[in-house]
Design a protein around this nucleic acid. Sequence first.
RNA 1: CGGGGCGUAGCUCAGUCUGGUUAGAGUACUUGGUUUGGGACCAAGGGGCCGGAGGUUCGAGUCCUCUCGCCCCGACCA
Length: 567
Amino acid sequence: MRFSKAYIPTTKEAPKDAQLPSHIYLSRAGFVTQVAAGLYNFLPMGKRVLRKIENIINEEMAACDAQEVDLSFVTPAELWQESGRIEKFGKELLRFRDRKENLFVLGPTHEEMMVNIVRNRVTSYKQLPINLYQIKTKFRDEARPRFGLMRGREFVMKDGYSFHSSTEDLDREFDAMEAAYKRILERLGLAFRVVEADSGAIGGTGSKELMVLAGSGEDTLAVCDSCEYGANVEAARRAPRSSVPEAPSADFARFKTPAIKSIEDLSNFFHVDPYYTLKAVVQRAVYTESSELVCFFIRGCDELQEVKARNSVGAIDLVDATEAELIEIGLIPGFIGPIDQDKIRIVMDNDTKGATTMICGANEADYHFVGVDLSVMNEAHFADLVSVQEGDGCPHCEGKILHTKGIEVGHIFKLGTVYSAPLKAEFLDENGRAQPFIMGTYGMGVSRLVAAVIEQHHDEKGCIWTHATAPYMVNVMVSNIKEESHLAYAEELYTALQSNGIEAMLDDRKERFGFKMSDAELIGFPYTVIVGKELDNGLVQIMIRKTCEIISVDASDVLNKIKELCQ
RNA sequence: CGGGGCGUAGCUCAGUCUGGUUAGAGUACUUGGUUUGGGACCAAGGGGCCGGAGGUUCGAGUCCUCUCGCCCCGACCA
């Protein structure tokens, strides 16, 4: 492409609404423009990057025998009523009626549609497994779109769905998809981590997220400093403590603790490590039709992880209980304990199971119990409730957990029969019995990946595209187009690059050197060949965007040098 | 949905507090000229429903009411 004919509207100043580097540089370099909150146009450069990523996904999917389809963006609301998700999705589903007053939604994801196209058509175990996917615009009317392409309302997602006759076969496909997703991210040149994720309300037997590591990521990850283990903090586990503080020695007793309410006060009052105290966190658990107060007990040194707590009681939401609510049901804030507790539903953290010499509230104002043996609670409801902290032990090795930030670019999920059962999508097994499909789902945020590449690869001058994502690999820049011999040389090189299969731009604009260099850096072509006054000495320069290093090369050898660099 | 901020030229912004010539700057754009290895210079131009509606006033970009939009924090969501 000739720059003089290209539509690449670069600007010196960033739009005032842009905050993240990806948003700033993709806007300034003319890759995208904003239309409205969470809606973006892809201009020629942006579209090329998008297509690069799509092509890589298509290649890797083909290698796994996944087949591409293209389902209607507008989907009948009845399908969503059938699966029950029309209520669950709420306002995120953009609904509208056509001229005949039929209700439709813009597809935010396509489980229902995908199940719909195989049900009653795939009817035998002999036709399984099948893996179908599409790369398509999705629409979710997010409450708060933000960060440019990172969290748009309209976005491009690769969504894949697999159908199996057994959980073993689903496991195999799940692993194959994980491997394919890893290859895709490796090819894109991204540093990432595969982490265990919360399966949440959707259920299923497990899910993993693919996280591109970047400080601007919205998710916090717990990762091991020495092995591959990583998890979203919502789902992170930790090793049992290898050493615990010295246990206090105390017989069971009811102890007067006037106005001692917080864990810190309690710890100081008894000169005991918070590890041996029991923290009570009361929350109102909200369900579809009702709500109730629940008290979560964890060790005083731990923090409650809200998603884990929510999952432990199957709630849709947890909100902090007020003191008034506690008092109303007869609890005494600051002195709540699990012993002989019948006023509230309780959930105990796994780490408190069988704990001894504990201190906990006595359910009586100004009194705590000391020397408590929690094995009396062995019949209680136990669950993993705590937030994994930095420095905790890795559950898989001797390493330590660190926290880091990530951008979720992929999420793969073992769905089981969560959708196939309610939608009655069934096949006949070897015994002639009808079974619902066992399903997996595999998502990848394609437009989000465009932003993720820049979050990970930019500097103060602009974008730095990786080889696989660059809109063009090489930019041939003519320093002064009035020098006819220079322009002629550049034209020749430009043609030669293309005939060698290297995508190239020719900057033939009547602009000054500095202006064109700044554009080249802002747009972020991996390599810019500078054709200028050194050509009279038989030399041209190659600017390597990643390092901004400029190397001199014999003018007759540039093509080979570029080929070498592109390896 | 709660809290905060902002809407003036294509873009970034001044002017609004304290109402009063023809609404400004930088940048971008057009034309001519000089330049040509780090976003050049000179000259001449074009470009505005001051987000929208209503009100106060002799007079509103500026004051009041309502409304729409965008951004940030949180809630929510993947």
